[in-house]
């Protein structure tokens, strides 16, 4: 018997603390497989955010830093400038990256830091119990928008990829999802593109992954994947917004 699917050695043996069905585990695996395939795991340094993935460092067998809420791109800047040959990535949720860390992500992108940012957008704060995020859909009920997000007083969902893509410096900005196997394969390709660009010192790469939060959406994981396709993707369309080196065509 030949193994056709097994766990990459870049992932640790620790069981994750994530809720049943949570997409974090999928995205962790795609990153870990990419680091293994590009043969850069021994010089990879991850930066864990604050939020559900605060313990991401427990799930990878690579060097890790745990940053303050929203500051991961600044921390990544300090690490990468000190060790330019390492492979540095941040892993951040939508509260971390699109609310409290707005300044850090915009300016790291604008400086063209040669790092990779993986942005998990599930439209809600998970760790703190389901509060409204900058990416929460209009009308969506959360702990802090119990009557639904009202665009008139709470604003509308922020499309971070589109904002980052307006900047001159970023090399690669793309939005993917992992709600089906086909989309997961595209997400893997995008993550691999991003890390390849970094390995080749070609600049800032940003992969937004539209994800589910079954617990705080109040849905079964399998229903959440369908809900994502019907409700999240019309607001957060999949696609590549910037690819200055044409890596997707290569």
């Amino acid at each position: 018997m030949k193994q056709v699917f097994g766990k990459t050695k870049v992932l640790s043996a620790n069981p994750t603390h994530y809720c049943p069905g949570c997409d974090h585990g999928i995205v962790h695996r795609l990153i870990a497989e990419t680091l293994e395939e590009l043969e850069v795991a021994d010089k990879a340094i991850g930066i864990a955010p604050v939020g559900c993935s605060v313990f991401a460092y427990d799930y990878f067998n690579i060097d890790f830093n745990q940053a303050a809420h929203g500051r991961a791109p600044a921390v990544a800047t300090g690490i990468k400038r000190t060790r330019p040959d390492s492979i540095v990535f941040t892993y951040q949720g939508d509260g971390d990256l699109a609310a409290i860390g707005t300044a850090e992500i915009i300016h790291a992108a604008n400086r063209g830091e040669n790092i990779t940012v993986v942005f998990i957008n599930n439209g809600i704060y998970g760790m703190t119990g389901g509060q409204m995020a900058p990416t929460t859909l209009v009308g969506m009920k959360t702990q802090t928008s119990p009557y639904g997000r009202d665009a008139a007083t709470m604003g509308s969902p922020i499309r971070v990829s589109e904002i980052i893509a307006t900047l001159e410096s970023p090399a690669y900005v793309t939005r993917v999802t992992v709600n089906t196997i086909a989309n997961q394969m595209k997400a893997k390709k995008a993550i691999k593109n991003a890390f390849t660009l970094q390995k080749e010192k070609k600049g800032f790469s940003f992969v937004e992954v539209v994800c589910i939060c079954p617990t705080n959406w109040g849905k079964k994981p399998t229903d959440a994947h369908k809900w994502l396709a019907e409700n999240m993707l019309p607001v957060f369309p999949l696609g590549t917004f910037k690819d200055i080196h044409g890596i997707e065509k290569a």
């Binding site: 500051r71 600044a74 690490i79």
Partner: peptide, 26 residues
């Protein structure tokens, strides 16, 4: 050496946090 003008003092100290964690005198 490396000089970075950060977007805020908050970012600057977190860059220091990153560089120090990577072994720099910073």
């Amino acid at each position: 050496g490396v000089f970075v003008q950060a977007e805020s003092e908050v970012s600057a100290i977190n860059m220091v946090y990153g560089a120090a964690s990577a072994g720099a005198r910073v």
